[in-house]
Nucleic acid binder design. Structure first.
Lengths: 223, 223
DNA sequence: ACCTGAACACCGTTCAAGT
DNA sequence: ACCTGAACACCGTTCAAGT
């Protein structure tokens, strides 16, 4: 019993949205999106599965909160002193690294680009786009185009996010590469040509090239 | 009994992958991705739920086949006589229209960008990019950037795809707009500025502007 | 206010049994 | 070869009952 009943006794192990989200992230990182069940989560938190619903609306909200928690951390770390183009690259790479480190975020972001985590990224990027000083109507287009780079990598990692572990994920990638090699050489000449380039290819570099391509487009259209 | 036993008697209602995919598309179009269950599909096909597994590996393969069926139709309709930039716009708009008409395709494409339907689009776009005559190493970047536009709209429609009907989808959009209006004006100044622009905004035009932005970037970097 | 955990209403997938 | 449909092993979510 607390001797001061005005300040509620808070047990260290009391349930809270923050603790639930933290546990969810651990499960997601360790075993992928499929492993996040309310039963598994309840077991990890040593509680009943129904208790989670007191703090979180449903599974979708839980995933959104988990993604938002990580994206919020990444976006708050980004400090801006450089010129807008560099800042945009930094923000985009921050999002890329978050998706790369937590593939389930890829599935989550690309599965619902209206969720809070995506808005956070868009706000960060959009502010820098504003600084470029283009006409109002163009802001939307430019920011969306940059967001597409982020949603693109998000999608690329979405499928892998459902697999449980890194070892199985690399197997998944080689399976994809093999699938490409089996495509009809005439009907899929271009894809096969890309497939040949795939082994020595750096995801992050490729992502940055995409961002730079959009930035170049912005530059050439409005400046 | 067929009087000619060499040519197999084919009952009009015989099960086949094509018929299954067709029925699946009807369900998906009518009631969204959530409505596509093997039980519902079996009922519509007047068969047992297990029978479907004889023709389709699993639910994921069924969705991929459904998406591929529609994308294949769209891509084969695209005839190319114009210059590559125009052809790219035509292909991209074809993909856009398919996603717009069948939002579940959005969820499907963005959920797994290594599936066949996506490769189809990439092949079509990539061939035109080749015609632009840029260096080999740049082909990958340019095509991926254009694919990002497609995956971007795909993602934008992914969330709506889970809702059942058009009426509920428009309610979903206004709910999103209201959510944006409630965001902290200081922390989300940019997003709120965009939200104001949202009502009089044309998705298709916006999409095309994104494609043009990337095309302009390609032009300015390599030509 | 917050937590418990059994119960409900579903799923995808499998498989012995049929034709 | 192809189909049937009950059975299995799960889910998310609810809710009466507890503290």
């Amino acid at each position: 019993m607390p001797f001061n009943s005005q300040r509620a006794e808070r047990r260290t192990d009391a349930l809270s949205k923050a603790r639930i989200v933290e546990a969810a992230i651990q499960i997601l990182d360790a075993d992928g999106e499929g492993a996040l069940t309310f039963r598994a989560l309840a077991t990890r938190l040593a509680t009943g599965s129904g208790a989670i619903y007191w703090h979180v609306a449903d599974r979708q909200a839980l995933l959104a909160a988990a993604a938002d928690h990580i994206i919020a951390g990444v976006m708050s770390e980004v400090t801006m002193r450089s010129k807008p183009q560099d800042a945009i690259r930094t923000i985009a790479l921050g999002a890329f690294d978050a998706i790369y480190a937590h593939p389930w975020i890829g599935a989550q972001l690309s599965g619902d680009p209206w969720q809070h985590a995506v808005l956070r990224i868009m706000e960060s990027i959009g502010r820098q786009v504003q600084l470029l000083g283009m006409p109002e109507a163009a802001l939307f287009n430019a920011t969306t185009a940059l967001m597409n780079c982020v949603l693109g990598v998000a999608a690329q990692h979405a499928a892998a996010a459902r697999l449980p572990r890194n070892t199985e994920r690399s197997a998944h990638l080689t399976a994809i590469a093999e699938g490409w090699a089996l495509l009809d050489p005439l009907e899929y000449s271009f894809v096969r040509r890309l497939a040949a380039q795939l082994p020595g290819h750096d995801d992050r570099e490729q992502f940055l090239a995409g961002v730079n391509l959009v930035l170049a487009g912005i530059q050439s259209i409005w400046f």
